[in-house]
Computed example of a mutant assay.
Amino acid sequence: MKAEIVAVHASPAHGFSKQRRDAITLIEGLGVEGDAHAGVTVKHRSRVAADPSQPNLRQVHFIASELLDEVNALGFDVGFGALGENVTTRGIDLISLPRGTRFAIGEAEVEITGLRNPCSQIEAYRPGLLKHMIGKRTDGKPLLRTGVMGIVLKGGIVRANDAIAVTLPEAPLVQLERV
């Protein structure tokens, strides 16, 4: 199976879900044009409260459609964009990638910085869903399953059905952690 984008999303307001778009424009060093989380410094509300000068390592959020398929098979109704992702993917195990992995998507290039941590808003959105968003790694640590975050290295337009070309970083590979 090839790695591809199945849907793209953005929202100008801080909220839980994002609206589906025909295309999104990624802006180098900032994120998704018109999205509330775009910027050089962190825009996530809890992180802004802690330290608004932090660099924004969460410019673009990717989530695997396979995760959504899994929870929907359990009876949850979770559509594309519902968990706040900018890019919904298919055919790639996002959370197993090492830090520094690069995606060439559409006209753009993104570098993966870490895992998205599942927040309590997931439980408010669909009661019982949060426990399915956290697994367990082989070392016993929690496995955050709600996708990966990245920074825009090269801007450009990204659309559904665009292929994802994956380039792994040089060794040593570093496991993704919460970012």
Rank of each mutant, 00 (worst) to 15 (best):
N56G: 03
S11F: 06
F103E: 03
E85N: 06
H9A: 07
Q59P: 05
L143S: 11
L67V: 00
Q54G: 06
G100M: 09
D22L: 11
T25Y: 13
F62E: 11
G135I: 06
A3T: 02
A49T: 09
T101Q: 10
I92A: 03
I63M: 15
I151E: 09
V8Y: 02
I27D: 12
E85Q: 02
F76M: 02
E109R: 06
I63F: 15
I92E: 04
V87F: 00
A82F: 08
M149G: 02
V71A: 02
L129D: 00
F103C: 00
R20P: 11
K131S: 09
G29L: 12
T25Q: 09
E107V: 07
L130K: 12
K18N: 03
A171Q: 15
P55D: 04
I112K: 03
L57M: 11
F16L: 10
T113E: 14
R47V: 10
K154F: 11
A124S: 14
G15T: 10
T89W: 01
M133S: 11
N56D: 06
Q19R: 15
L83K: 01
V71R: 02
G31A: 07
A23R: 11
T167Y: 00
K43Q: 15
V174L: 12
R102I: 09
A23V: 04
I5K: 04
S17P: 08
A82S: 12
I134D: 07
D69L: 04
S17D: 13
A160T: 05
F103G: 02
T25D: 13
T138G: 13
N56L: 10
I95T: 10
L26H: 03
L67D: 01
P52D: 12
D51N: 15
A10I: 00
L97P: 01
D51P: 10
L168G: 02
G91H: 07
A13C: 14
T113H: 07
A36M: 12
G128Y: 00
V152L: 04
Q54P: 05
A36S: 12
L94P: 08
Y125F: 15
A124M: 14
Y125K: 09
T138S: 15
